[in-house]
Amino acid sequence: MPDPAIEIRGLRKRYGTFEAVSGVDLTIPTGEVFALLGPNGAGKTTTVEILEGYRDRSAGEARVLGVDPARGDAAWKSRIGIVLQSTGVFDALTVEEVIAHFASFYPRPLPLERVITMAGLEEKRQARCKSLSGGQKRRVDLALGLVGDPELIFLDEPTTGFDPAARRQAWEVVREFTRTGKTVLLTTHYMDEAEHLADRVGVIVAGQLIEVGTPREIGGRAAAVAHVRFRAEGTLATAPLPAMPGRVESGPPIVAVATGEPTATVSALIAWAASLGVSEIPELSVTRPSLEDVYLRLIEEHSDAATREGAA
């Protein structure tokens, strides 16, 4: 088993009396796409910037590609790629010039053509950066992070400001990048982005990593209670509901049943409706909590817990 791409133990960062990161442990194996989620000010960016070598840590251990990021030299930097949130000042230069210039910093850069194609900038290669839209500038940022052919890439909110089509395209770029066994650490506010890209997600709140798991399972999502909903109209509104393995939470008119066995619940409902002469149950749906629901619940639980602790 190869060394993990990122390994951190007891990571802390203090600014005066404020602790932005308070004891984070995390291992990201090589080849994984890991998404760090969390509200603004939770310590996401601080954690990532410590790993990128931009900030010193106050305590704890960190290894990025086997190197302490506080001591990363040029050889180490040529193995990582950083896509930053803010765009630099390249107004007077063309897209192609900027990418070629950054490529010249690296010992083994990707071919220019390939980077431009990956970032979807073929049409804009001769354009001055000044003339680019926000989304196009972001694609240049993405290209600059990839051009050195890094083993590990840091993506800080990679698609903020993208239109939906451009986001899909950016996700394709990231997927293509990871297909060759490379590692990605991503921060994002978009749950669909984490769900599309990440093998695992971690939720960071108040400087602590409170939950780590796959997008499907995090926060007990896979085993979580499902909701069966339908609109009770006509005879369905007046007849008593059948026996179901679940608890009726609301309705009519919109009946919501919270259940651990949605299939059995739906079967019971179909049989019940058929017995009343209704072959199509209006607006019937089965939903499980979305990643966003789980994320919001985790943050709420955590801040409740923190409040209780503070009061005690």
């Binding site: 931009y54 803010s86 630099g88 000042v89 010992p107």
Partner: peptide
């Protein structure tokens, strides 16, 4: 100063550029 404010220095610092 402008290039530092605009994040160019940070960006360059994250690359192997001496």
């Amino acid at each position: 100063s402008i290039e530092r404010s605009e994040g160019l220095l940070k960006r360059l610092a994250g690359t192997p550029l001496p």
